[in-house]
Amino acid sequence: MNLNIIGYTIYLLITTFIILKVGKICYRNGNIFVSELIPNHEDLCHQINQILLVGYYLLNLGYCAMTIISWEKIQSFHQLIEIIAFKSAIIICTIATMHYINIILLTKYIKKLI
């Protein structure tokens, strides 16, 4: 049994679920921030938010797929769990960092407009 293929499958399922779930939450709640940037243009704000969501999906799913290249050969189930946990933690930290950077930048931009 090839543990790398099992690891790839589990890793991609976990990270895809996390990325899609966080993307939906940020998309739903992000309309408020985008509409504050461009008041009285609800359609434009909705389209900008959709573009941000697509960019988020492409960046994170692409990064997940690219990290699979750097995996070493998995020899045991213990190593399988360790690698999946470590790689998933990196993705979660990356998503959190990007989210906070976006919030900081949006907040500073809105404060400049006010």
Rank of each mutant, 00 (worst) to 15 (best):
P39A: 02
Y63I: 06
I19V: 14
I81K: 07
L12Y: 03
K21P: 03
V34P: 03
I48E: 01
G30P: 02
L58E: 01
Q50D: 12
K108D: 00
H41R: 15
L44P: 05
L105K: 15
S70E: 04
I10G: 05
I18K: 09
I10Y: 01
H41A: 09
T9L: 11
V22R: 13
H78N: 12
E72D: 12
Y109S: 11
S88H: 01
T16K: 03
P39N: 02
C93Y: 08
C26V: 09
L58V: 14
I69N: 11
I51N: 10
N49R: 11
L52S: 13
L80D: 07
G55L: 10
L80N: 08
Y109V: 14
C93I: 08
L105H: 11
G30R: 00
N29W: 01
N2M: 11
K24Y: 12
L58H: 02
L59D: 04
I91S: 06
C45F: 05
F86E: 12
V22H: 05
K108H: 04
N4Q: 11
V54Y: 09
C45M: 05
L12E: 07
I14K: 04
T15G: 08
F17G: 08
I69Q: 14
I25R: 05
L20T: 12
I114Q: 13
F17L: 02
P39C: 08
N29S: 02
Q79F: 06
L12I: 07
Q47M: 01
W71E: 05
Y56G: 02
I19E: 10
F33D: 03
M1G: 14
V22Q: 07
I51C: 05
Y8V: 08
E36L: 14
Y109W: 06
G62T: 04
V54W: 03
W71D: 02
C26F: 07
T9M: 05
M66E: 07
L113R: 08
Y27W: 05
L61N: 07
V54I: 15
I68V: 15
L52I: 14
I48A: 13
H46K: 10
L80T: 00
Y57S: 02
T67Y: 11
I10E: 02
K24E: 11
I110C: 00
L53Q: 09
C26N: 10
I32Y: 13
L113G: 04
C45R: 05
V22P: 05
I81V: 15
D43P: 00
K112H: 10
I74Q: 09
I32P: 01
V34N: 03
T97H: 04
I114K: 15
K87D: 15
F86N: 06
I114P: 06
H78I: 08
W71Y: 07
L12K: 12
I110Y: 04
N60S: 15
V54R: 14
C45S: 06
K87V: 09
R28H: 02
G7R: 04
H99S: 15
T16Q: 05
C26G: 10
T94I: 14
L13W: 05
K73S: 07
Q47I: 09
A96I: 06
C45E: 02
A85F: 08
G62C: 07
N29R: 01
L58N: 03
S35H: 08
I19S: 06
Y11F: 09
N4G: 08
T94P: 01
S70G: 12
L58P: 00
L3P: 04
L52H: 11
E72R: 00
